[in-house]
Nucleic acid binder design. Structure first.
Lengths: 187, 187
DNA sequence: CCTTGACAGTCCACTGTGGCATGCTACCGT
DNA sequence: ACGGTAGCATGCCACAGTGGACTGTCAAGG
């Protein structure tokens, strides 16, 4: 009823439903894979949006299947709403990086501890970059150009972050030079 | 009472209060300048957190001044809580970039429109980079090393994004080659 | 037959956002 | 001197988004 514009999360769900009816669970899984690297969503929200969108007539729930699976399919109104959303100016990007907060307040923190945090995060980013680059190498062909473009963003982002990590020791009051040049991963 | 761990926003406020008593308004302004590029907060939330933290004994409200100004000052408990927060492993970073969503669903969108969105965002990032680099050039000296480190992150991030924008035309089904090769900045 | 584990959805408390409303007061022009 | 207005300062609300706990379902295997 209320024709307030969609939010980006709901719109994405409609986008995925173009490929055919899916359940909330499927949508979460799909979203994680396809847009998870630059758009976060949670189960709770997905189910909530689906309920709301059904009430608004943008999707239609089908018969409940085996495991309480409730598939939703796109309606014409939903297709319409998706198009309208897609044509609106996308909002500004948001970064929230807790590590940068910790660094910003680094004056109050033991340098060794800070160094440990930094090392941990660096290895996370290194792993992600490796992932992305594998994807780019392997099967970049079977991706559509749009997916390749967002993947490229990821690669460049991770590379930049890693370079920053490399330069950090020159910028920050260092750990008192312990067994530091061993980038070991202890888990 | 409830000694649940602080959230990052509340903790940041405590961090800023180390410099002396401040009002909610001041805290918002400070936060915007100091951590605004990688941590967002809103007035509403700041006031809510302050109220909650006062109830928890982490800050103490002073006399109400001229314009209903209500300065808060750090208590010992607050200082303690801040330290404990700062020593906890900072969480993973979050990026939410609506433009990437639009691109990911670009198949459903008119290429010209997509190109327009891209151009608009590119100029935003260009402007931010210019800002950061001015800051780095000018007065990088009067910044503490920690601020310089976070600024460096910003610079590298924006540079990476801009490079990505440069490469996009090679990845995406292009706009039908309108007056495109003029990277004009209209403002 | 019963446990285990992946699947599927729900609920709740909290965090975070943006806009509206409301007063206050310093300053400005007349 | 005085009325307007711009910016200061806080509060409130509805909604978006998060993460964890919880319930239930089915399939496979010991």
């Amino acid at each position: 009823m209320t024709d307030r514009p969609l939010n980006a999360t709901a719109a994405s769900l409609l986008g995925f439903l173009h490929a055919g009816p899916m359940t909330g669970w499927d949508l979460v899984a799909t979203a994680e894979v396809v847009i998870g690297d630059f758009w976060s969503l949670t189960r709770s929200q997905v189910y909530r949006e689906l309920t709301a969108m059904e009430a608004a007539g943008l999707v239609q729930a089908g018969e409940v299947g085996p495991r309480e699976r409730r598939p939703y399919r796109l309606t014409d109104a939903g297709r319409e709403a998706f198009r309208r959303w897609l044509e609106r100016e996308p909002g500004p990007e948001q970064i929230r990086y807790p590590l940068l907060l910790t660094i910003a307040f680094g004056r109050h923190l033991d340098p060794e501890r800070l160094a440990a945090f930094v090392a941990a995060h660096r290895s996370v980013h290194a792993a992600r970059l490796a992932d992305y680059e594998t994807l780019q190498g392997d099967g970049s062909d079977h991706l559509d150009p749009y997916a390749r473009a967002t993947l490229d963003f990821g690669v460049r982002y991770e590379r930049a972050v890693l370079e920053w990590f490399e330069h950090l020791p020159g910028l920050l009051p260092l750990p008192p030079a312990a067994g530091d040049d061993r980038p070991e991963a202890d888990t």
